[in-house]
């Protein structure tokens, strides 16, 4: 079983549209995982049926039993996160600031503080319009810890792939360089970077590549909107060469990306033939690279 992860560092590069296209092209023979749980958008293109929904708990939250509290203030003294405000002598926990470290409950002399498991979201195992299975998630409002939810989505996708005897998993990865993207990359066999030719795009590509290097896996790059700034497109290509990253393809700036999205379609479903052809070839190349690099 091989896992291909698509990431971009910067948002708005077309990562999700491109990932959904690859998933669509592969039809039933793939498992899809949306690990961009902070902004999970792929379902808008692939129309999952939300068949199975599961609660997702992560981390802990301190709760003070007001009947047992003796107002000694020990909990507030040890809390490094300013999560225990006092109002009219009453100690409470601010759920947004609480990190769930449990220090307060360990020092409370009357055991008035307990830690409860926190429900932070839901994840789903769905069938999408290609009949393939997709694992995706929704983080609760103002919830924390998307890194663990990413790991959960990926693990479920692996279980599904094993059960359905699918050889490929495609992952829409998280933005940035922090904990969620580290979880997205863990265990992957090949990484596709989607870049755009802007100073920000190049800057973020370089940063995310520094992270990818730590994982020692094969890397390729697709340059989207390449004609917006041909000069920077060349800079990106030079960078790819220097870093030994495979240049997969470049796509022109095209409003049909937005148009298909507005119609709830994957771009290869009703986009123009030129883009469809480039994406088809890109996907074949990625599959080949994945099989070569990881054997």
């Amino acid at each position: 079983m091989k896992e291909i992860v698509v990431i971009s560092g910067k948002g708005g590069t077309g990562k999700t549209s491109i990932t959904a296209s690859f998933a669509y092209l592969e039809g039933e023979n793939i498992v899809v995982a949306d690990c961009d749980v902070d902004a999970a958008d792929m379902h808008l293109l692939l129309q999952p049926d939300f068949k199975i929904a599961k609660d997702f708990y992560s981390g802990e939250l301190a709760v003070i039993d007001q009947d047992a509290c003796i107002y000694c203030g020990e909990c507030k003294t040890v809390c490094r996160f300013d999560a225990i405000p006092v109002e009219n002598g009453i100690y409470t926990v601010d759920p947004i600031s609480c990190e769930g470290c449990g220090y307060c409950s360990r020092v409370c002399p009357v055991d008035a503080i307990t830690n409860i498991d926190l429900l932070v979201g839901e994840y789903y195992i769905s069938t999408i319009k290609t009949k393939a299975t997709m694992v995706h998630a929704r983080l609760g409002i103002a919830a924390d810890n998307s890194g663990k939810l990413v790991a959960q989505v990926k693990n479920s996708a692996r279980e599904v792939a094993e059960k359905e005897k699918k050889e490929l998993i495609i992952v829409d990865g998280s933005p940035g360089i922090g904990c969620p993207v580290v979880s997205s990359l863990t265990g992957a066999h090949y990484v596709v970077l989607v870049a755009e030719p802007s100073l920000s795009g190049l800057h973020d590509l370089k940063r995310v590549n520094e992270l990818v290097k730590i994982f020692k896996i094969g890397v390729g790059c697709i340059i989207n909107k390449s004609d917006i700034n041909p000069g920077i497109t060349e800079d990106i290509k030079t960078f790819l060469k220097d870093e030994d990253i495979t240049f997969i393809s470049s796509l022109p700036y095209d409003e049909s990306f937005t148009e298909s999205m507005t119609n709830g379609k994957v771009i290869v479903e009703n986009g123009n033939e030129n883009i469809k052809e480039i994406l088809k070839n890109s996907w074949e190349k990625i599959k080949e690279l994945t099989n070569n690099k990881s054997e």
């Binding site: 948002g11 902070d38 902004a39 947004i96 983080l139 409002i141 103002a142 919830a143 924390d144 810890n145 998307s146 933005p175 940035g176 922090g178």
Partner: peptide
């Protein structure tokens, strides 16, 4: 702010 709606944004 960073993108998204989770801990860094809050």
């Amino acid at each position: 702010s960073p993108p998204g709606a989770s801990c860094p944004v809050i």
